[in-house]
Amino acid sequence: MRLRLRLRGVLLVLALLLAATAVVPVLLLGDADADGATAGVAPAPPFNSSRVKAVSWQPRIFVYKGFLSDAECDHLVRLGKKKVHRSMVADNDSGKSVMSEVRTSSGTFLDKRQDPVVTRIEERIAAWTFLPEENAENIQILRYEHGQKYEPHFDYFHDKVNQARGGHRYATVLMYLSTVDKGGETIFPNAKGWESQPKDDTFSDCARKGLAVKPVKGDAVLFFSLHVNGVPDPLSLHGSCPVIEGEKWSAPKWIHVRSYENSPVPEEENEGCTDKSEHCAQWAAAGECGKNPVYMVGTEGMPGQCRKSCKVCDS
Rank of each mutant, 00 (worst) to 15 (best):
E137M: 02
S277K: 08
G272P: 06
S204F: 06
P189C: 08
S94P: 04
T104S: 15
E271P: 00
V77A: 01
K248G: 00
G298W: 08
K112W: 05
L226R: 03
K83M: 14
L177M: 08
F62A: 09
S56P: 02
I121V: 14
D181A: 09
P116K: 13
E185V: 11
K81Q: 15
F157G: 03
H238C: 09
T104Y: 10
A212W: 00
S97C: 10
S50C: 11
L28V: 10
C280T: 07
F223H: 02
H238P: 01
A44M: 07
R103S: 03
I141K: 00
G66F: 12
D275C: 06
Q114T: 05
D91N: 15
K217C: 07
N292I: 09
R2M: 10
P45R: 14
F47C: 05
S97T: 11
G304Y: 00
A32S: 14
F109A: 02
D219E: 12
P116V: 15
V243K: 03
N190K: 14
D200A: 09
N190L: 09
W57I: 09
G272E: 01
A191G: 10
K214H: 11
A19L: 15
F67Y: 01
E134L: 11
E151Y: 03
V10R: 06
Q114D: 01
V89Y: 02
L131D: 01
V297I: 15
G218T: 06
G290H: 07
R4K: 12
G304S: 06
K308V: 03
S263M: 12
G95R: 02
N270G: 05
G30T: 12
A220G: 02
L226M: 11
G9I: 09
E101W: 10
E271H: 08
L222V: 15
E267S: 14
N162C: 13
V161A: 11
P46R: 12
Y156K: 05
E133D: 04
Y176R: 02
E134F: 08
P293E: 07
F223T: 04
V10W: 05
V41F: 08
S225Q: 05
R258N: 13
C310D: 03
G210V: 06
L5N: 14
G239W: 03
A281N: 11
F130R: 11
G272Y: 00
C73A: 15
K81G: 04
I139P: 03
L211V: 08
L131M: 14
R60P: 00
E185S: 01
L7D: 05
L131C: 08
G167D: 06
V102K: 10
A19E: 11
N48Q: 14
P198W: 14
K96E: 06
G239V: 07
P242I: 09
Q197C: 13
L68A: 06
A171Y: 04
L18W: 09
K83G: 05
S56C: 11
V23Y: 12
S94V: 12
K217I: 11
V216P: 02
E133F: 09
S236R: 05
E245F: 13
R124Q: 13
R8Q: 15
P252H: 08
G107V: 03
S50P: 04
L177F: 10
N138D: 06
